[in-house]
């Protein structure tokens, strides 16, 4: 029973979806890349999108409402973000693999309760909670504290990237960051847990022990929720898809998808 949701459907918005399709369709499931708060589809377009397509998977990167090239939505909630993901996923030609980064992983976890994904990959997942908030507060008090009062959550370069990324690139990426809606930010602290996933999809969790946003304990907690252990990439920052060694995590994800059919109808 979802009377409450049925009675109040999410308002439609224009959504930005970037895609890269391999030259040869090999019957592999498409990947839908969901960026975290503040990021847009551009974060994936930088490196991962083309690489995924080059390896024979069609890849789609979207921007949540209010981010990147999607229409502005200052009053959006986590539910609206999850709605965006499900809408884009259901619009793809085949059952999709959902890949969520940062708070986008939480959005994906919510979306999984509304869409039977082929599989899901949570990259450096931010599931919210007080511990994560404490870490953010310690590392970047001036970027985090105003968010409590409704301002945009600001992340600095040192939180997001490792030292290996050239300073100019880090500055360029950080300059493109936007912000999530304040209600969605609050829901990181106060929101309810995602409902159980439908269709029993296999889930991979990966992250970095040197991530300055997601503490290792939070990473383990997120992985335990899906009865697995996180795959670790030491020395990388929070934004694994933009960092200097972006190639390693995405290759690991694709290898996992090829190796782990998960459900028997995966080609």
């Amino acid at each position: 029973m979802r009377s409450w949701e049925w009675a109040r459907p999410v308002r439609p918005v224009r959504r930005e979806v970037l895609s890269a399709v391999p030259e040869l369709e090999e019957g592999r499931p498409p990947l839908l890349l969901v960026p975290g708060f503040g990021h847009g589809a551009w974060a994936y377009a930088e490196n991962w999108l083309g690489h995924v397509a080059a390896r024979g998977f069609s890849a789609y990167a979207m921007s949540l409402r209010g981010h990147g090239g999607s229409a502005p939505a200052p009053e959006a909630t986590l539910r609206a973000y999850a709605h965006d993901v499900v809408q884009v996923a259901a619009g793809l030609p085949r059952r999709a693999v959902l890949v969520g980064h940062g708070a986008g992983a939480l959005v994906v976890a919510h979306a999984m309760a509304r869409y039977p994904a082929q599989a899901a990959v949570l990259v450096a997942p931010v599931f919210g909670g007080w511990a994560t908030f404490g870490t953010a507060l310690r590392r970047n008090p001036f970027g985090t504290l105003p968010a409590v009062f409704g301002a945009g959550l600001r992340l600095n370069r040192r939180q997001l990237f490792s030292g290996e990324l050239p300073e100019a690139d880090a500055r360029r990426h950080a300059g493109r960051l936007g912000r999530a809606a304040r209600r969605a930010q609050w829901q990181l602290l106060t929101g309810t847990d995602p409902e159980p996933a439908v269709g029993d999809p296999p889930v991979l969790v990966l992250g970095s022990p040197d991530d300055r946003v997601v503490p290792a304990a939070a990473l383990n907690r997120a992985a335990r929720r899906y009865a697995s252990a996180p795959l670790l990439f030491p020395g990388m920052g929070h934004d694994l898809m933009l960092d200097a060694r972006w190639r390693e995590p995405i290759d690991a994800i694709l290898d996992w998808l090829i190796k782990n059919p998960g459900r028997d109808d995966l080609g």
């Binding site: 049925w6 009675a7 308002r11 809408q87 259901a90």
Partner: peptide
């Protein structure tokens, strides 16, 4: 209306 008519795990396009 749409929310009552779609499959719960495969929504109709919201536009």
């Amino acid at each position: 209306s749409r929310p009552f008519t779609q499959f719960p795990d495969f929504p109709m396009p919201d536009h």
